[in-house]
Design a protein around this nucleic acid. Structure first.
Lengths: 195, 195
DNA sequence: GCCTCATTCAAACGTTCGTTTAAATCAGTC
DNA sequence: GACTGATTTAAACGAACGTTTGAATGAGGC
């Protein structure tokens, strides 16, 4: 299997540059220059620029969704129907953990969410929708009065706040404070009585 | 003043294509082809591709922020310290009105918010921060217990939910329903007790 | 008719892009 | 030390990009 050294250095460089300048705004040459690799290394190790983005996105998102799954498992082991605030904390926590661990991760996620090009979104795997559906079911039990449409709307708000606020807010508010802010903000929003 | 016909046709085409494929993903040639204009028309009427984006963004955002200002004025005329739910409705309402009026407007806003390139963000004018600061002050009176940091965090959540949820949710949920969902969701979130 | 000015047009400019190629280098194995 | 397969390298490819140019076109005033 391909030399892991230059491969991961390309992944690191690409993650930083994609977050900083976007997918289309980052040239393969800029990535390989930053990685100290040859221009052709991207084609050799990943096949194409689009597949490089898919690899970068997978490496960023996978630890988040496995941590979200684990947190939900822990919650369900104690209580088959966890309260809303715990579900919010289990969902939001891993995003803050991983986003704080690697600088610019939140900007990268925001870039992926915001880019309208199919090329940028098509990396998504089945694990993503799985964890999403599991939380959806848990919230449905915790909020039985909500219509499916309104619940779906609130789930989208969950993702929006965590992604956007972390992307731009990290510079103004500390990580731990903004994690607590997000949980109170979102727990109140999710728990609101139906419209 | 330059022929308004081709000028607005270029603006329409650019608004649609920027929303669909992003700024960098849209070529000047694609814009002029869709507008039925010559390639050089963009340079003639706008100066450059970046200035075209600025014009598109201004045309989309300006009616929203003037409507938000007007709604806040109406509120303050009745009550110098309006409740949180009214402030949220005054803020969210115009975004839904304008976003529903023009197809793809929310995707365009999402594209602008998500694009990390300075080129894409630099169009922003002073009117934007003005309306933002006015709502910030109004919310500060309505929520005196909140620290400035947490209030600032919640204001960002306000924008995140309206932009993101409208961008991807429009296809699943009707405009009027999702406006009501957004107001209950955000009013509860903003009214939450301090962390 | 002629001049003026704004607008449109076809064509080309130079640059940057993602990808490909074929030779060069390196690490093991015999 | 030669063979093998994986990796790196320099160079080039063709395409697409934003921008510029200079001539053509159109309408309105004199």
């Amino acid at each position: 299997m391909t030399n892991p050294d230059t491969r991961t250095q390309i992944l690191d460089a690409a993650a930083h540059l994609f977050a900083e300048r976007g997918y289309r705004g980052t040239s393969v040459r800029a990535v390989t220059d930053r990685a100290g690799a040859n221009l052709a290394a991207v084609g050799y190790h990943f096949g194409s620029k689009a597949e490089l983005l898919a690899a970068v996105a997978r490496r960023v998102v996978e630890p988040i969704i496995t941590a979200q799954c684990a947190a939900l498992d822990r919650l369900l082991a104690e209580n088959p129907e966890p309260p809303v605030a715990d579900l919010v904390a289990a969902w939001v926590g891993p995003m803050f953990d991983e986003m704080s661990a690697a600088e610019g991760t939140s900007k990268l996620i925001m870039m992926i969410l915001g880019d309208p090009a199919e090329e940028v979104r098509s990396w998504t795997g089945p694990a993503q929708s799985t964890v999403y559906d599991r939380y959806l079911a848990a919230f449905r039990h915790a909020l039985p009065a909500l219509s499916p449409e309104e619940l779906w709307f609130r789930m989208r708000g969950l993702l929006a706040v965590t992604a956007v606020d972390r992307a731009e807010g990290a510079c103004r508010v500390g990580g731990e404070e903004s994690r607590a802010y997000a949980i109170t903000f979102l727990a109140a929003a999710m728990s609101a009585p139906p419209t």
